[in-house]
Design a protein around this nucleic acid. Structure first.
Lengths: 143, 143
DNA sequence: TATTGTTATACTCTATAACTATA
DNA sequence: TATAGTTATAGAGTATAACAATA
């Protein structure tokens, strides 16, 4: 029956994290929409900013079916944001990467995201920001 | 040219928050999918858990067009999760609320979300959890 | 006149199933 | 045989424009 005294505090913590999640999602969705992109397309570009994944990697990363990724890539490729290349190591695989144009767009949105999300921390001083980042890193650390 | 010495730290902080956002979104999406619901439908039910909003309120809350809300409500109503009622105060408006069945489903998913998100904090002790919750509350405080 | 909600329309997003090519 | 990716299909999610009812 959960008589753990910190159970109520844990509920509040999860609620706060979920609340923050929806706030951030709203900002990112709007930035995507300003550039005629869905949140999913924005995420694809964000991943490609630092990686050259195969279709299967993208599917795993986003938690979507590979057929869904095919469609997303089709539309982004048609718009000139990214391109496909057959893998040299495995001729079945297809690597996905940003075009120069896609990289510029991605960088612009990345900067917009920072510009628009930073005000969320206006009430935190330097020590509190550092503390928050350290705690989030602990939460996100890969096991 | 941003020679602010804490600019780099702020970038890392925003990155961490965005990363956490996608982690949480992934968990919530999976819980929704387990119940044959999109993330948006899950959010609608989550809002109705504590409110009886009008269609326009839902649209504002979710950042979606009212026509999109109409469709979401249609499908959820057809499945018996929620219902519509004409407002008494304003005969143009429509109030949306959970059915008993929808409330049970929502509660089950709410509990699943806590059960699955809580392990994210496994590396934090009680003081750190309290600290994180306080900082998130500061970030989320409505002005 | 302005606001609330619905409908028609046109895309995008998404998963499932069936397929081709490569390993 | 198993894996990587695509395509066909069907349904959900989404915005825009046009509309009816009410304020």
């Amino acid at each position: 029956m959960s008589s753990n005294p910190s159970a109520a505090a844990d509920i509040a913590l999860v609620d706060a994290l979920v609340h923050a999640t929806f706030e951030v999602t709203g900002v990112l969705s709007r930035i995507g929409a300003d550039n005629d992109l869905s949140l999913t397309q924005l995420r694809v570009l964000g991943i490609l900013r630092e990686r050259r994944p195969r279709v299967t990697d993208l599917a795993a990363h986003l938690g979507l079916d590979k057929s869904t990724i095919s469609g997303l890539i089709d539309r982004a490729e048609r718009r000139g944001h990214l391109a496909r290349a057959r893998s040299e190591q495995d001729r079945r695989a297809v690597e996905v990467f940003l075009t120069a144009e896609g990289r510029e767009l991605t960088q612009r949105m990345y900067e917009a995201a920072h510009r628009e999300l930073l005000p969320m921390f206006a009430r935190l001083d330097v020590d509190q920001r550092e503390s928050l980042e350290r705690l989030l890193d602990l939460v996100l650390r890969e096991e």
